[in-house]
Simulated scan of single mutants.
Amino acid sequence: MKKFVRPLVAGALSAAVLPFVSGTAVADDVPPPIVEEYDYPGADAIYAQYHIRLLKGDGHILFTDCGATGPLVKVWSRIAERSYFCFRVTGESGFLTMDVPDVFAITGDTHELKATVVIKGTATPTDVIKNTYTPVGEGVDPQNGFTPLVELRSGRS
C-alpha cells in the first residue's frame, strides 16, 4: 500500500508545483522589484497649485502649510501670490531637490540647513542661519538675477 500512496502524493505535488516552476508562470506572477526612487509624493498637485517643482527627497524635508505649528523653513520667492513657501524638517538630516524659481531669501528653522541656488548657471550652496532670515541669490546681490532654489539639505545628509 505504501508504494501506491507515495507515487500519488508525489505526482499530486509535482502537478501542483509545476506551473510555478515553469518560466512563463513565474515570470507573469513575479511583481517588479521594489526600488526607491525618492520621487516626491503629490508633486504634480503641488506644482499645479503653487508653481514649484518638488523632485526628490528622503522624506525628512516636507512641503507644508505655512500656518502649521512648530518650526518651519520659509523659502521666499517672487513667483506666487504669497511671497513664501514652507517646509518642515522632520529628522536630524534630510534632503529635498526642487525647482523653486526666483528665490531671494530663506528663513531657517532650528536645523542646520544648506540651500543650493543657481546663480548665472552655477549651483551655489549657501548656509542658512538657524531661525534667521538669510538672503540668497538675488537677495545677496541684485546682479545675480533671478535665482532658482534647487536643493535644501539639513544636518549631515
Score class of each variant (00 low, 15 high):
residue 66 C to H: 06
residue 44 D to Q: 15
residue 58 D to N: 11
residue 63 F to R: 05
residue 68 A to N: 12
residue 54 L to Q: 06
residue 52 I to D: 05
residue 56 K to S: 13
residue 49 Q to F: 04
residue 48 A to E: 15
residue 44 D to M: 09
residue 49 Q to G: 10
residue 62 L to A: 07
residue 56 K to D: 12
residue 65 D to K: 11
residue 62 L to R: 13
residue 64 T to Q: 09
residue 58 D to K: 03
residue 56 K to H: 14
residue 67 G to V: 01
residue 51 H to Q: 07
residue 62 L to Y: 00
residue 65 D to M: 14
residue 69 T to Y: 11
residue 62 L to Q: 11
residue 41 P to N: 10
residue 67 G to E: 11
residue 43 A to T: 09
residue 66 C to A: 13
residue 53 R to N: 02
residue 67 G to M: 04
residue 56 K to F: 10
residue 50 Y to G: 02
residue 43 A to S: 15
residue 70 G to S: 11
residue 67 G to N: 11
residue 62 L to M: 08
residue 60 H to V: 00
residue 70 G to T: 10
residue 59 G to E: 00
residue 58 D to C: 03
residue 59 G to V: 00
residue 63 F to L: 06
residue 63 F to M: 05
residue 59 G to D: 00
residue 48 A to K: 14
residue 46 I to W: 04
residue 40 Y to A: 11
residue 55 L to A: 08
residue 40 Y to F: 12
residue 65 D to Q: 13
residue 46 I to L: 13
residue 54 L to I: 04
residue 51 H to L: 03
residue 68 A to R: 12
residue 57 G to D: 03
residue 50 Y to D: 12
residue 64 T to N: 09
residue 43 A to Y: 03
residue 61 I to N: 01
residue 59 G to R: 00
residue 45 A to C: 11
residue 41 P to A: 12
residue 54 L to R: 07
residue 50 Y to Q: 14
residue 50 Y to C: 02
